[in-house]
Design a protein around this nucleic acid. Sequence first.
RNA 1: GUGCCUGUAGCAUAGUGGUCUAAUGCGCUUGGUUGUGGUCCAAGAAAUCGGAGGUUCAAAUCCUCUCAGGCACC
Length: 371
Amino acid sequence: MKFRVSEGNKDSLARTGILKTSHGEVQTPVFMPVATSGAIKTLNTEEARAVGAEILLGNTYHLHLRPGEELIDREGGLHNWMNWDGPILTDSGGYQAFSLGATRSKQAKTTEEGVRFFSHLDGQKLFFTPEAVIDIQLKIGSDIVMVLDDCAPYPATEKRLRTAIKRTGDWAQRSIDHWQKCKVGERGLFGIIQGGLDKELRQQSLKDIQNLPFDGIAIGGVSVGEGKDNMLTAVDYVANDLDPSRPHYLMGVGEPVDLIRMIHRGIDMFDCVLPTRLARHGSFWTTNFKRENIRRANFTSFSGPLDPECRCPTCQTYSASYLRHLIMTHESLGLRLLSIHNLWIIFDLIRQIRSSIKNNTFSKQFGAHLS
RNA sequence: GUGCCUGUAGCAUAGUGGUCUAAUGCGCUUGGUUGUGGUCCAAGAAAUCGGAGGUUCAAAUCCUCUCAGGCACC
């Protein structure tokens, strides 16, 4: 994997770049839609491509549980299986082990060796190590592999955060050692920093991770319930010290305004469930990045599109009243059409941001959203 | 015509003398969702318990009449 910065801006850390992967190049900044179990919920890959997707995120935790990496491997790898020829990044499962891998009585737990957790499907006891999750991701066919990290929940004590960055750092070293023994070709391995809302720990974690030869640096442990202001603060602790020659990935973000603010802080890559999850619950973004809900009664006989400024396939074709009807009657077409709209809003924003960075007008054009 | 059964929010039901200031589910209204457990979570509005009269300290609950629906028999 290779990364090259194309343009930077004078009054911002915002930059454009090109990420060269084993399945082609993508421009940055980039947004990766989430295809947890090998599908962007409700969309096929042609629709995803048409709406602007260039690289997808898959999930080690989910794919390992179901159907298992052996089957995916036998079926020719995830790309082939799901009919996607672009790059795929896989999340390591560190986060999911905690968010999903607990039962009422049994919590997920990290030890020096790895993380022990329980399948949310059948309660089966499972164990992830840094080495094992790399093997799984390679078998799935991932182009960008994420290391196993220890993602402390929010809020967390300083002691818990210290453990998290220590574990994450130790595991990062083990991941690099293991990676160098594997046949990886053009694939890339990203390290993840932790540290919660603690400045010293964030900076220490960044140092730990950045000292290792990772292909990219991810900021983890954000968008875990800490709120927008706290998230900005956490990123600010490290933004100026991120190695400019490597891509910077902010995990789990976000909302359109979050993308603008974080790109301003030098972030190149994002993934987030919001566009599709909000859609499934009837929420959508307008071209002003406001949230609305199609279930609201005043859309009942609104014959215009969701947003008159929007040029997405959904808004070009269907009225808000029809979309409301589909959502209210639980027609799956409604989920799909709203997902298309929300993803379009995000990808269109990314396109605008890229071009503003190239023209050196990013701060001017998006200044209203920066503070 | 006679007998029996049933009438409780928009719909389906629970409650059969006092803890009913009437409950639950669906629907409706309004929010929420940030490294995805796919129809979720939270809050809210909405019923003088078919109607009228009566018994009782107290009635959705008992009695009488009446209206509506269903079933059975003539």
